[in-house]
Amino acid sequence: MRKKFFSTLLIIVILFIQLLSSTGCSKTTHIFAFGTECNIYSANTSEIKIKDVKKYIANIDALLSQIETASDLYKINSAKAFEVVSVNKITFDLLSLTKELYEYNHNFNPAIYPLVELWHFDPKTYISGVSPEKIPTDSEIETTLQYCNFDYFELNPEELTVSKTISEAKIDLGAIAKGFVCNEIFEQLKSDKTAVVDIGGTLKTNKDIEVNILNPIKDSDEPFAAKLKLSAGLATATSGDYHRFYYVNGTKYHHVINQDGYPAWHNDIDPIISVTIIGESATICDYLSTLIFILGDSEEAKLLLNNFGYSAIIFRKNTCSLIGDINNFMIIDNRYTLTN
C-alpha cells in the first residue's frame, strides 16, 4: 500500500516537473547570421534541438558567406573559368533551386553579383550611411552586365560540383537564402505548434500571428507601415529599398538591381519602396519579394503571383496596393492610402 502510494506520487511529481520545464524554457533564441538577426520562437522544443538548429544556421552561414574565403560561395565566385568547385550538399540543393527559379522567370537574376560589387552594395564594401563619391558610369554598367548571366554556371548533380564558363561570373544568393534557411528550420521545428522562425524578417509560423511590416519611410513617426494576420503554416518575406542604400548628389540608390543594371525604379517618379509577399514557402516568398519589387504591379507580376497562389503588398511613397487575396490587413501609418 505504502509502496504503491509513493511510486504514484513520484510519477506525478516527475510529470509535473516535466510539464513546468517544457513550458518554461527556451522561448526565444536570437542568432546573428546572414548579416542579420534571426529569432526562433519555440516554447516546446528541447534545448538540444535548439542547439542543433543554431549549429545548422552557423553551418549554412559559413557555406554562403561572400567574405569568408573558405565558404562555398566564395570558392565559386573566385574560381577561374572551367575550374571545378565541389560544394556541400546544402549549397548544391540551394543552387539547384536557384536555377529552377531563374529558369521560371529570368527577371530573377542570381548572377547579378558583379553589378552589386560595381554599385558597392556587396558586404565587403558597403558601409551603412557611407556614400561612394560617384555612381558607376553607363559604360561600366554595360560591360559588367555581360557577366551577369546565370547561364554561365554549370551544375553537376552527380559530383556535387559547380563550374562556370567565364571567370567574371559571380553568384548572389541574397534573394532566396534567407527564405531557404527559414523553410529548412521550420521543417525541423514543425512538431511544435508554437514555433515561429524569423530569419532577418523572413518569417514562417506554426500558429496564427500578427506581423508588422517595417515602415520603408524611416523618418516617419510610425515604425511600422502596416500589419497583417499570418495564419499557421504561412510564410512572409519583404524586400525594401531601405536595407542597403546611399545617396549620391541627392539621388537615392538601393541594392535591388534590375535587368538594365540600375537599381529598380531608378528615375521613376513614384518608385516602389517595399514589397511584402505572403504564401506557403518562405523561399518562394523571398524570391517573389525581390521579383515583384523589380516587376512592380504589372500584369506579369499579377500572373506570376496568381500562378504561385501567393499575394503581395506593395508600398510606394504615398500609396499601398494589394495583389491577391489578403485578409486581416491594416495600414498603421496613415501616409499610405490603399489603392487598387
Binding site: Y41, V196, L203, T205, L230, S274, T276
Partner: peptide
Amino acid sequence: FVIVVANNQEMYITG
C-alpha cells in the same frame, strides 16, 4: 462584430 483584449508580447516584424 468582436472585440478582444490583447497585449504586445512577441512582436513579429517583416522587412
